[in-house]
Structure formats: C-alpha cells, structure tokens
Design a protein around this nucleic acid. Structure first.
Lengths: 153, 153
DNA sequence: TTAACTATTGATAATGAATATCATTATCAA
DNA sequence: TTGATAATGATATTCATTATCAATAGTTAA
C-alpha cells in the first residue's frame, strides 16, 4: 500500500470575488479598480495564468492597467494565500486560484486547466526521512501533469 | 562550507566520471576539455548547482570556458538523463546529478544539498485520478524541502 | 462632505537569466 | 594526416521580472 491514497475529487474553490476583496481590505490593502479586475480574473479562472495573460485579460475590464500592477497584485494575492504560484517548464511563473485546505495540483499540459486533489498522507514519509537523514523538512511539493479530457479529443 | 565537495563515493548515484564520458561519446558527442570539466563537477557534487555556479567552478579547471558552453553542456547532460533540472523558487534553474532509478529529491534550502529517496507508490493515485477526472497523466513531480543537519547547527 | 495622508498606480528604465548568431577552433573518423 | 563538422567563446539579443519615481486615487479623520 502506498503512502499516497486517492480520495474523492474536491472541487471546493474560492471563487467568491467579494470574499477575496474583503480579505484584501481586511489586510489593509486598498480596493482599487485594477485590483478588482485582477481578482475577478483570478477568482473565476480554472486555468493557470501567466502575469502577461492576466494583463491581457485585465485590459478588457480596465484598459489603462499596467503590467507592473499585475505583477504587484498577484504578489499580494499569493501572500494572502488566495492564489498559488506554479512553476512553468521554461522557468516562468503562472498563478492559479488556491484550493481550500491542503490539496495538490493536476495541470493539463495543453490548456493549463488546473484540478485539485487531496488524499496523500505524506507525514509518515516526512517523519521517516527527516529522522533518517537528519533533515528538518519544512515543505513538500507534489504536482501531476497530463492532458485533460477536452484536449485529448 | 563550499558548494562543491571533495570526491566521496556516493551510494545510489552515478558519480563515475568516465561512465558519463562514455555515455556522451556513445551518444555521438565529442569529448572536449570544457565538457570534461563540467562532467567532473556535476558527477561529483552532492548539491544542486546553477549554471553560473558550474561556470565558476569550471573555470578552475579550464579558465577559458564560456558561460554559454556551460548552458549547452548541461542541456546535453540533462537530455541523456545524467543530470536533473530542478526549479528554484525564483524561477531559475539548477542541476543535480541524477539518481539511479526512479527517485525523488529532498533539498536543503540553506546549502542546496540534495538527497534522494524512493518508496512512495504513486501509481494507484495516478490511475484513480486519471479515470475520475478524465486525464491522461504523463508526469509527476514530488520534491521535499528542508534544512539538513549541518545547516541546522 | 472635505481635506490630508499615503498606498497605489503606470511609465520608464534597469536587471539578469537564458538564447541566438557567427566566425574560429578542435575532435574524430577516414 | 586530413577534412568534415561538432563545438567553442565572444557578442548581441530576447524576455520575464524588478526598481524607480512622479502622479493619482482610496481611505480615514475631521
């Protein structure tokens, strides 16, 4: 039996734009028009988005927005745990709406659609490795890559 | 302590410089002085190394080496499976000697020392997720981060 | 509502990793 | 030994990300 056990699909995702805005405000950040545009885009997307993709999408809602503002807003949303930063193959970064609780990512290599899954009990492995190798293990990183059903057809 | 360690036999790792050179030659690549320097560095290091770190180390052995040559050689070694490319937090890339067989990485955040571990069976999870979500899962990525015993003290 | 404080913005420039170009050099098979 | 060409190193270039800074706009206190 493996350390990783599959579980039910969990689709709970923080898509509530107003909730995100409240969290921003409660954290002392101002609610500006560019920020609202970015929050709308990130909270509602099921795909990973690069800063430039967010920039292009945000200009539909707020044409004067600057790319640097996108970078800065994404940075804050990540800091608040509302979005995750994922590493692209080429070394660039993209972002996705964060799932609720501790989950991991399954990303479609073709369309960048992101799914979340739970179900790994990695603690025993971490404890064993930590004591065996003398490491203080702080973080783990599990991601799956594949092709989603739509992109297969 | 330095990034590069003096030669030490390492279990479960391909540290044989000559073996790497044979593989390069068998694959149709020429054995050049800069390439030999890079192979020596990569095969003997227990740490992840950025292209620039490899460059600095390689100049000790071959002072005229160019940074671009380092990039190109690392690319080839990765293509042959002799080294792995790992993603840094900032989005840059580093490389480590590849382990034998299918293993995963445990990296020290402080000194970049890399350990390998086996032992978790991800197949059931992948099969389950693939059929549940309709994904053709092609690749998975598991890495642990922590602080090694030396860096804790 | 108004005023004032200051977080935030957007334009621009700068940084830095990674890649492309190209004439020259060096490896290796014939 | 020699010739075809893989490989090199210097240089320029691309592109994602970050720094700078004056102007703007959100928020709070009055």
């Amino acid at each position: 039996m493996g350390i990783l056990e599959p579980t039910q699909p969990v689709q709970t995702r923080q898509t509530d734009v107003n909730e995100w805005l409240d969290i921003l405000a409660d954290s002392g950040y101002r609610l500006t028009a560019p920020r609202k545009a970015i929050v709308q885009i990130m909270a509602q997307s099921r795909h990973t988005l690069t800063p430039n993709q967010v920039f292009i999408a945000a200009r539909q809602r707020y044409p004067n927005i600057g790319l640097v503002t996108v970078y800065r807003s994404l940075e804050k949303l990540e800091e608040l745990g509302l979005i995750w930063r994922v590493h692209e193959i080429d070394g660039c970064h993209a972002y996705v709406a964060a799932p609720s609780g501790h989950q991991h990512l399954l990303i479609c290599r073709s369309c960048n659609r992101a799914e979340y899954f739970k179900g790994e009990n990695i603690e025993p492995l971490i404890n064993r490795l930590g004591s065996e190798r003398g490491y203080d293990i702080q973080e783990h990183w599990l991601q799956l890559y594949g092709v989603c059903s739509e992109c297969q057809s």
